Amino acid sequence: MSMAGHSPQPLSIDVPLCLYVDLDRFAGLPSEQVLSDEERERAESFRSPVDRQRYVASHLALRQALSEYTGLQHAELHLSKGSFGKPSLTGHARTQFSLSHSQGLALIAIGGRGPLGADIELLRPVPDAAVLAAEHFTRREQEALAALPAQERDRAFLTCWTRKEACLKAIGVGLLVSSQSFEVGLEPDCRSVELAVAGRILWLLLGPAPERMDCVGSIAEWRQTEARAGNASHSGRLLEAHA
């Protein structure tokens, strides 16, 4: 069969709902009617009133978005956390979501396929970018960053940073995976990413959040898990990460 005239289908992340929220202007339901005891205790732990307000606003916005996506009332939304702190919606395993915020701006992603990770950073100067890159980026990513004109490095660094964070949030295994063990690049493109975790290969789709001039955002979706060769119990099987 000739493939002339056909091009590969672009990678697509299943995120039906993806939105930015201005936390300093967000007005939702009173927090005592919506947030859990744990969330209220966490809010009270912030010394800064601004940080406390932004934390509350981000979690109210998340619950409002989940309510709109699922059709559930706020009182029916019960969030729980995995062993490494990744939140999930109790009783609704097919509803995947991720929340990130940078100062007064939040990014919320909700979908119905694989586990999601979202990360956002406000665009700003990063004077220690080279030091941070040496600690968290692959050698090729470090070299690519150093080769850029100075005026392009801040956005490129933050793009790579949010892409790493989005992948790690999607798989939800905390510090078990080093950010230097996988490559995401400095460009806000769509690509597949391979991570090795505890004898398994995890496949993710990675792409940019909707473009804004004041920030960079990234979203990752964990699609599949494959056992490494030599794992007798799972060798050769391809498993859906969210089955």
Rank of each mutant, 00 (worst) to 15 (best):
M3E: 15
P8W: 14
P8M: 12
P10K: 12
V15S: 12
L17N: 06
C18K: 04
Y20E: 12
R25L: 15
F26I: 05
E32A: 13
L35M: 08
A43E: 10
D51Q: 14
L60V: 09
L62T: 09
Q64R: 12
Q64Y: 05
A65E: 03
L66R: 06
E68Y: 02
T70K: 11
G71A: 06
H74Q: 09
H74C: 07
E76D: 14
L77R: 02
L77P: 03
L77F: 04
H78Y: 06
F84P: 00
P87F: 06
A93L: 08
R94F: 04
T95N: 02
F97E: 05
S98D: 02
S100Q: 07
H101V: 06
L107R: 14
A109E: 11
I110C: 07
I110A: 08
G114D: 05
G114R: 08
L116F: 13
D119F: 01
I120F: 06
E121W: 00
P125I: 11
V126F: 02
D128N: 14
A130N: 07
A130P: 01
V131E: 12
L132S: 05
E135K: 14
T138L: 04
E141F: 03
E143H: 15
L148I: 10
A150R: 05
A150H: 08
E152F: 00
D154E: 10
F157L: 01
K164W: 02
E165R: 10
L168A: 04
K169I: 04
I171A: 00
G172Q: 07
S181Q: 11
S181M: 04
S181F: 01
L186S: 01
E187R: 12
D189M: 10
C190W: 12
S192E: 14
A196K: 04
A196P: 00
V197R: 00
L202E: 08
W203S: 10
L204S: 05
G207D: 02
M213C: 04
C215S: 15
C215M: 06
G217H: 01
S218K: 09
S218W: 02
A220D: 01
E221R: 03
W222F: 13
R223F: 00
R223P: 00
E226M: 14
A227W: 08
A229T: 14
A229H: 12
H234Y: 11
L238S: 13
L239V: 13
L239D: 14
E240K: 03
A243C: 14
